[in-house]
Design a protein around this nucleic acid. Structure first.
Length: 602
RNA sequence: GCCACCAUAGCUCAAUCGGCAGAGCACCUGUUUUGUAAACAGGUUGUUCUGGGUUCAAAUCCCAGUGGUGGCUCCA
């Protein structure tokens, strides 16, 4: 692969950064009393945060956009100047956010525990274009002549509230988003990408394809799975369940609710109380909707005395968990309040850890590749050496981290290490997938845990007759069924490979007189295990084709007199390829082959 | 939770300046029997999200709430 140019050094980064300054200039002309905060480039564009005296309206945005284009057309140079701290304080004397930044730059900032985050900056620089000066490290374009006004827009994304320095206890500012490209063609492509993303939005497709709904009477963030969506979900579940049973996993089922003592023992309560629901009173005892499945599985382990010969024990459950999410954060299936984890907990001896970990990673790789999801990266989350929020002793952490990294190396998995991303009880490996909007989603996760075995006092009797502590591996290839299916919908734009398609084949009789044959074909394919329906409604053939095509059914079988005579079906694919007539048996064989091989094509 | 925007028939949307709430699709009833992207005719469907206010008059203006959308914060 070609080494990619770092975004921060690219021309488009400079364009976006400079356009952000131009937007700030135009905004100050519309809102002279505005206080400016920060305005960095981001993926696909830039933003700038302002404190405004009144809400910003669409007509303000239009005005500002127009003014920006005028400024951009003015061939104004971006001039950099080094200033002393006092000069900077004078320049920005009316800009409290800038003054705060200057102090942090001069002194080096510290976090709320007094730990230094940055060293003091060697010098301060300001950039000026036209009538606007901003505290800025740069770099910028030489002149606005390098920015094409026709490749800039600030009306594609609505303004949003954003807290100063991302801290919800501080002032909420108005964030204006913009996008800027090198050429108008690139801007047009970006618009088209956004439109494509909207077309693929799993919330729209989910409704159109009858997969799921979210009903306000049932509650926010609590999806209802319709029959078609449930078929898809069940297919995924059955598939993974079978794979897991082949690999020695043991299915268990545990309740959605548990006594609060369980979660006190596990440490989830009150440690994660922010994302848990208020306990429920049951005859004077407190019960909680479970936020995780692992405490229940620990108690399954504890149900009898274990020998070293019993390990590894791999308990698997599609376990539904409930977590409080702030209402503004809920989104379709990708962020919900109740969801099902394809969970398993492996209880292993320390000497089994590496092999078991590798087997889990192989399983996850198999799951992703079977679904054609190739745009993912792996992240090894290790602990932050300067933090004390972790449990367990250093030697065990070191051992677990080495096991994870060795496993990745031995499997040839591309990964990068991120200190500070570990769970509090152990290091982990996360699989991060990119969707069509280029948003990254954390899906599968594997975590090594020394903490819960200790908290639940889990033991096994080793061959030397000593009681020892097992290690736990938490793992979930999908992460959450809901989120995973949401991403699958967008990934396939609703056109699922046949093995996943809720309905695989629709049979369309040309006339009512062909209904009997259509039903016969339906029964035949059903007996072979296909998900198939004959559409016998009193409507004409063409309108049925239109309907089922829109539902992205993989195979449409048209049957008429000629087909009855030859015991054939006329096959039309959802991508509008017409395969013509073929013997029913040939179709069944070909379709089953595609289904059984989990083919991506038709 | 916070900021902004939005809410009209089952769905997608219209309704000029505050002046009788409409269309397409869907659905129902007939007619039609069709070889690959919507047959024809007729019909049903409304607490204009909820509650309050302004007005002779409110889908439309104002206030509050509920729900949705885009962000922010958080994410075991």
């Amino acid at each position: 692969m070609m080494p990619e140019e770092r975004y921060e050094e690219s021309q488009i980064y400079k364009i976006r950064h400079s356009t952000a300054h131009v937007m700030a200039e135009a905004m100050l002309q519309r809102f002279p009393e505005a206080k400016i905060a920060i305005g960095p480039p981001i993926e696909d564009g830039f933003y700038y945060d302002f404190e405004l005296s009144r809400p910003i309206a669409d007509k303000d945005i239009k005005w500002v956009e127009k003014r920006m284009k005028k400024i951009l057309s003015g061939r104004h140079a971006f001039r950099m100047r080094e200033v002393t701290a006092d000069e900077a304080r004078e320049i920005f004397r009316d800009q409290p956010y800038k003054l705060e930044l200057i102090e942090d730059l001069v002194n080096g900032s510290i976090d709320d525990k007094g730990q230094p985050l940055n060293d003091p900056a060697p010098g301060l620089t300001v950039y000026t274009q036209n009538h606007f000066t901003d505290l800025c490290r740069g770099p910028h374009v030489e002149s606005t002549a390098e920015i094409n006004p026709k490749a800039v827009s600030i009306s594609l994304r609505p303004p949003a509230g954003a807290y100063w320095r991302g801290d919800e206890k501080r002032q909420q500012l108005t964030r204006i988003y913009g996008t800027a490209w090198e050429t108008p063609e690139q801007l047009r492509d970006f618009r088209m990408r956004m439109e494509e993303a909207i077309k693929r939005d799993h919330r729209t497709l989910g409704e159109k394809l009858d997969l799921f709904i979210i009903d306000s009477m049932v509650g926010k963030g609590l999806p209802l799975w319709l029959p078609e969506g449930t078929m898809l979900r069940d297919t995924l579940e059955r598939w993974l369940r079978d794979i897991q049973i082949e690999r020695g996993y043991l299915p268990v089922v545990t309740p959605h609710l548990g006594n609060i003592e369980l979660y006190k023992t596990s440490g989830h309560y009150p440690y994660y109380s922010d994302s848990q629901y208020t306990p429920i009173d049951v005859d004077g005892d407190e019960f909680m909707l479970r936020p995780m499945n692992c405490p229940h599985h620990c108690r399954v382990y504890s149900s009898r005395l274990r020998s070293y010969r019993d390990l590894p024990l791999r308990y698997a459950e599609f376990g539904t968990v409930y977590r409080y999410e702030q209402s503004g954060e809920l989104r379709g299936l990708t962020r919900v309040r109740g969801f099902t984890v394809d969970d398993a907990h492996l209880f292993v001896r320390p000497d089994q850890l590496l092999d078991e970990f590798k087997a889990v990673v192989r399983l996850i790789q198999h799951v992703f590749s079977s679904l054609g999801m190739t745009d993912f990266r792996a992240r090894v989350g290790t602990r932050d050496p300067d933090s004390d929020k972790y449990v367990g002793d250093n030697a065990l952490w070191e051992e677990a981290t080495v096991a994870i990294v060795d496993a990745c190396d031995e499997l040839g998995l591309a990964y990068h290490i991120e200190p500070g991303e570990a769970a509090f009880y152990g290091p982990k490996l996360d699989f991060i997938v990119r969707d069509v909007l280029k948003r990254e989603w954390q899906l599968g996760t594997v975590q090594v845990d020394y903490n819960l075995p200790q908290r639940f006092d889990l033991e096994y009797v080793d061959h030397d007759n000593e009681r020892k502590r097992p290690v736990m591996i938490h793992r979930a290839p999908f992460g959450s069924l809901e989120r995973f299916i949401g991403i699958l919908i967008e990934h396939f734009a609703g056109a699922f490979p046949p093995w996943l398609a809720p309905t695989q084949t629709i049979i369309i009789p040309i006339r009512a007189s062909h209904n009997a044959y259509a039903s016969e074909v339906e029964a035949h394919l059903k007996s072979k295990g296909m998900r198939v329906k004959a559409d016998l409604q009193d409507r004409n053939m063409r309108s049925k084709i239109k309907t089922h095509r829109a539902m992205k059914i993989p195979w449409l079988l048209i049957v008429g007199d000629r087909d009855i005579e030859n015991r054939s079906v006329s096959v039309r694919l959802r991508n509008d390829v017409d395969l013509g007539a073929m013997p029913l048996e040939d179709f069944a064989e070909a379709a089953l082959q595609k289904i059984q091989s989990q083919a991506q094509d038709l």
